[in-house]
């Protein structure tokens, strides 16, 4: 346990002295801001023009700020995480093997699982920082719209569920990434392979267009984006949580096996 924490601390200090973590945070924050501004503008247009179209009043009753702005933002953040997490996880094991520091870890009186856990914890911490930045947007809405009632107020339970879903998605992405980092020879190959797999999972739902029945159900069951959707609507369902947790477990298991098996330099 102490070794795990020592590795996590080391990993964090190394991560923040390289540009990668900063770039990931900036990318997530920048694109989130773009999506947020767009969604907010759309919401403003809708609410200001709703009176001019027939049935607009009923429409207005059914939209709310959280669904129209925050859920849209979080949906995009999901994709940003899928695109950026591989770059956060790519060096975790591959870089140590490349520079030879792997030999220090592997000849220390610690188990491979402690190495993987320490590195994973550090990457989860960076993910948490990224999501804190994302959480600033609904916080901003809440402050700016103080006193708003009904659809105009931020529904914090829904926001919290969305953040939980994003955290699970990011954690699963990092677990897949650390597995590839342990399997691949270089960080770049690790990043590309995990990006490929994660994008495949994210887009799995799209492969079902035109397909029916079992194939459709299977693809939807595998899709990382379809399992995120309920969280964004404020629903925390066990199958969705289990989906992400099993991805995490699978990734970490493969990573641990690969570290244990790859005792050569």
């Amino acid at each position: 346990m102490r070794a795990t924490l020592a590795i996590a601390r080391k990993e964090l200090s190394v991560t923040f002295t390289t540009p990668v973590a900063w770039v990931v945070l900036v990318v997530v924050a920048f694109f989130s801001a773009q999506v947020f501004a767009g969604a907010l503008d759309g919401f403003r247009l809708l609410t200001s023009r709703a009176g001019e179209i027939p049935g607009g009043a009923q429409l207005l009753e059914r939209v709310n700020l959280t669904d129209a702005v925050v859920a849209r933002l979080f949906g995009s953040v999901g994709l940003f995480l899928v695109m950026t997490m591989p770059f956060l996880s790519m060096r975790l094991v591959a870089e140590e093997r490349r520079t030879g520091t792997f030999e220090l870890l592997m000849t220390a009186p610690i188990r491979p699982v402690e190495i993987v856990a320490g590195k994973y914890l550090a990457s989860l911490a960076v993910l948490a920082v990224a999501l804190l930045l994302v959480a600033l947007f609904p916080a901003f809405l809440s402050v700016a719209g103080r006193g708003a009632q009904g659809g105009g107020a931020v529904e914090w339970p829904t926001v919290a569920a969305g953040l939980l879903g994003l955290f699970l998605l990011g954690a699963a992405a990092l677990a897949v990434g650390i597995a590839f980092s342990a399997l691949a020879g270089t960080p770049v190959v690790a990043a590309l392979l995990s990006l490929l797999v994660l994008l495949g999972l994210w887009l799995a739902g799209m492969f079902t267009v035109g397909a029916g029945g079992a194939a459709r159900n299977l693809a939807a069951g595998l899709s990382a984006s379809e399992h995120l959707a309920p969280f964004l609507q404020g629903r925390i369902a066990l199958p969705d949580v289990l989906y992400y947790l099993s991805l995490c477990a699978l990734g970490l298991f493969v990573a641990e096996r690969a570290v244990e098996g790859r005792r050569w330099a």
């Binding site: 200090s13 190394v14 002295t17 520079t99 030879g100 520091t101 792997f102 030999e103 220090l104 000849t107």
Partner: peptide, 17 residues
Amino acid sequence: RRRIGYLPEVPPLYDAM
């Protein structure tokens, strides 16, 4: 391993530390 001190062929040092 608790009883071994090991210097590999390439000293395993982290550049950023």
